[in-house]
Amino acid sequence: MTRFARTFAAVLGIGTLLVAGASMGGLAAAPDQPKKTTICLLPKKKGLPYFTTCAKGAQEAAKELGVELIYDGPTDGSPEKAASMVDRWALQKVDVIAVSPNDPQVLGTAMKKARDKGIKVITWDADAAADSRLFLVNQATAKDIGYALIDAMAKDIGGGGGEEPAGEVAIITATLTAANQNEWIKHMKERLEKYPKLKLVATKPSNEDQRLAFQVAQDLMKAHPDLKGIFGISSVAFPGAAEAVKQAGKTGKVLVTGLATPNDMKAYVHEGTVKSVVLWNTVDLGYLTVRAAHALANGTLKAGDTTLEAGRLGTKKIEGDQILLGQVLVFTKDNIDQFDF
């Protein structure tokens, strides 16, 4: 018997075993059991404090409502892995999948597939194509975020004295391919037109690496001596850039802003490296998402509704297919200590 034949026989044998195992599992009878509503919450990247605080709010709501909450996402933020998770949840026939898409196209395809299987799919935190989900739990659109970042920077540079903000600014983003950040940058550039004296001189990737963001910020300050502001628009790019400014002794001369949970940036805000931090209440975002998902699962929330009863958050407005959380918060020296998340 040749080696090839042996190999072939082995493949055949294992295949048979697989099929046998599979059919055995399939043949077993399935007794009916009362099924708890299951809601899956997918973050862009697991392990970020931003999403961990969202998950806290989500768990709070799940406890109140007595639903089963599954919180899982790729630890490396890979959209492909996130899409695989949506595929799996769809096959497990969960009730609602709430997705924060790290890449709207990649996730959108998987979400459509899940919807074809009859799963209710919503987005939260960030959006995907409108036909891939029923509702968006909207804390802020990409446009809101982009505009808020530029406005905060303009206010910080202008010093609030009514004079026109002027100077060079730079962006440190996550990766060049990061879909959400690219969308924000698009709107940031749009908003910059309102401030003709603010000039964007560079947009550099930091590959989700704090050290790299630190180095890029250092290089930017030296290469552009007139730099007035740095946007750190990915999770670790913000503290990385702030630390670079602080260590270069340019606190107050080069301002840093970005998105972060207040607890993580408190120190920088108090010492003045960072004047404004843009974000929203992440705990409430997670809470609202699970509330909306639950309402969708038991049929109390339907397309066309204009309000949603959201537990401790009270009644929330729905505009079209968007459930609104509320305003974008800007944390400054004066108010940051009032928040703890």
Binding site: L18, V19, G21, A22, S23, M24, G25, G26, L27, A28, A29, A30, P31, D87, R88, L91, Q92, K93
Partner: peptide, 23 residues
């Protein structure tokens, strides 16, 4: 696969050919 089948319980969702083919 055996552990998967065992944990699957009576439903056999993970180990079922349809699931396996799709995954």
């Amino acid at each position: 696969l055996a552990i998967a089948a065992w944990l699957d319980g009576p439903d056999g969702a993970f180990i079922s050919p349809a699931t396996q083919l799709e995954l």
